[in-house]
Nucleic acid binder design. Sequence first.
DNA 1: AATGGCTGCAACCGCTCTACA
DNA 2: ATGTAGAGCGGTTGCAGCCAT
Length: 499
Amino acid sequence: MSHAGSESEDGMLSNNQIESPLGEEGNYGGSANGGVALKKGPWTSAEDAILIEYVKKHGEGNWNAVQKHSGLFRCGKSCRLRWANHLRPNLKKGAFTQEEEQLIIQLHATMGNKWAQMAAHLPGRTDNEIKNYWNTRIKRRQRAGLPLYPPEVSLQAMQESQRCLNIDRIESEHKSQHDTLLSKNYGIPNIMFDNLKANQSILPYVPELRDITASSMLMKGVSSSQYGSFMSPIMHRQKRLREETTLLSSFSGGMKNEFHLFDQFQDVNKAAQSFGLPFPFDPDSTTKNPEFFGENQGSHTLANGNFSASKPTAEAVKLELPSLQYSETDLGGRGLSCSPITFNRTVLPLIFVRKNGKTMVTQISPLGHTATSLFSECTPISANESSLDESPSAETFTEANVKSEPVDQIWIADRENESSTWLDITFPEALLDSDWLEHDSACGKGQVIVNDAMGTLLGDDLGNEYKQMAAGASVSHGCGRSSCSWDSMPAVYQMYELP
DNA sequence: AATGGCTGCAACCGCTCTACA
DNA sequence: ATGTAGAGCGGTTGCAGCCAT
């Protein structure tokens, strides 16, 4: 075969003959192009020079003509890729700067896997580079048991999603806050960003239910969902608990002062609406609204645990995921017993926590993820831990100084405060018609609801934890009633009112 | 020093979409 | 309407470098 080193039609190889542009080790296993085997594999410097010369002479485009006119035994696609990713001028090389990384995170949260679009916001960076970075980031953070998105990024994305769901009432009610959030840093308050820098480990992405400790969810008074993402499946549970507690505390500490958007949610309907959930709750809404459980084409959050309001939900966009983000099937392969999905999709798996008239919500998806949550001030009810107001700053949290505590122990400590009605549930309208609730009329208090599906998702380990909590909750009523039979609970809700 | 595992990156493949002839 | 080229993307592979043993 003719060697690329031979003079090409336009003589472009004249100064590249020291090394064969094809490379001695060239792989010619590629598809034939007019009977010529095309080289595959790494590009040599000689090949690069040929391509550069060609582009200088003919300009970009018409890549399939490169092989004909330059003597390069590369397909047009390969040439285009090489040029775009490595040879074109003004390409930035080297690691991403911190600013670039933050921008990528923000961009991904808003536009999803639109690598090219993201690259347009990062001069000198290529889509492939960004994609590789993102996939690498996912792996890294997964290994580290860290969430993928900073909370404020998720928050902003969530708000964007919410906004696009056209919840006018909510918007009008919180217009001022909303505008403020959107006005800077992609809607992220600077102060939040500072908090992020202090603790970049926080994040609402692909939380695994197995990693959702009852203590972190309930005792801290803050949803654990966004903190438990990407926990290593093999990470020791206690370690994960510690880390999660750390994340929770730091996040909640940061959130309580800066984020009041949800403070005005006086009932779960509003809170749920804040997630773009259909209310009044329609039992069929999950099918009517595919986005509900991750089929929202514009939301990565509910689909795969990836929180990304990549597109307004009103738009029909492809569901796109970073290549390494776990899918439903992945979860099954990772030991999470979520297949088949046993959740009754007509029941929204949310955990509502109310305190002082403020509602916190954690959503547990059928995939075993808590998707989103939060929101208002909510003091940890642990007697052994300080309130959020007294929580150490994010900077001070380390794995070492956060201790895990048995869930039931913490719960008991709080429930002994008999003077307060710690369970006073405001129910979604749809649930009022369901039979899952056993309101404890004898003592006028509600109860903890944990159902089988959740138990299944939680697994034996954490499931037992919930059982204990449920049992503890019933005792806490002080009326002698066992209102929280784990096995008989048909629903997927947990609702708590904290004193 | 040798070996093997892990990691990150470059590159490829297959597919879809769009523009254009 | 159809075919082609280019662009974009997800998924994957191969390889070099690093690190622990």
